[in-house]
């Protein structure tokens, strides 16, 4: 494992922990899109089916379990926790799941490395992860005012994606036959979706003002 991959995993982990910590300590999920969180739970549930079939490493297994448990916990908190759920702004978070899930699934049926259930689910999870942030970005645009933790959450997710791209470049030059078009293209699309957000994030950071997105 290279340094980019490890740093990518750690920022990914940090993003989830920041979110859980925010929800757990201030008992609020204001500004967080339940739709995005449900899509991430679906992403992990479909991608990590190999937990039952392949063993890669202890690190790999533990991280997968952490992502599964944390993503489902976040969804549970927002939907069912008696205090947290009151802060969920249902009327603003209107993005439809199937708008993203259905095209991703159809695409996975057509473009995949192997036509098996496990492989199609894995490919589906890659496509879905690429676009799962969209409901969150729409919500950010709508509410405009973003609290620090929500901003940091999206920033950490973007950092994770960027580091994964560096990881792929590194692996391409250091490992023989490391060519994965499906992973790369969906990963690139995913990272590009953050570009706009990043622009405003850095502007507000540079000018030392609270992050606000244009309407």
């Amino acid at each position: 494992m290279n340094i980019f991959r490890l740093a990518g995993d750690m920022t990914h982990l940090a993003s989830v922990l920041v979110l859980l910590l925010k929800i757990h300590t201030i008992k609020s999920c204001a500004g967080i899109s339940l739709k995005t969180q449900e899509l991430y739970a679906l992403v992990f549930a479909t991608r990590y089916l190999d937990l039952f079939t392949d063993y890669i490493s202890l690190y790999n297994t533990l991280m997968k379990l952490i992502f599964l448990v944390s993503s489902f916990s976040i969804v549970w908190y927002i939907r069912h926790h008696k205090i947290v759920r009151r802060s969920y702004d249902k009327d603003q978070d209107t993005f439809r799941h199937y708008f993203l899930v259905l095209p991703c699934f159809l695409l996975a049926l057509v473009i995949n490395e192997k036509f098996t259930v496990k492989e199609i689910m894995w490919t589906f999870s890659l496509y879905l992860e690429a676009v799962a942030i969209l409901p969150q970005l729409v919500l950010l645009q709508r509410t405009r005012n973003i609290d620090n933790l929500t901003g940091q959450y999206v920033f950490l997710l973007g950092a994770y994606r960027s580091l994964y791209i560096l990881n792929w470049i590194y692996r391409y030059f250091t490992e023989p036959h490391y060519v994965h078009w499906i992973t790369w293209i969906s990963g690139l699309v995913q990272t590009l979706l953050y570009a706009d957000f990043f622009y405003y994030y850095f502007q507000s950071w540079k000018n030392n003002v609270k992050l606000e997105l244009p309407a």
């Binding site: 190999d50 392949d54 890669i56 992502f67 990881n167 490992e175 992973t183």
Partner: peptide
């Protein structure tokens, strides 16, 4: 060709 090398990623 090890076409599964990306599977060790998260």
């Amino acid at each position: 060709v090890n076409s599964n090398s990306a599977k060790d990623e998260l």
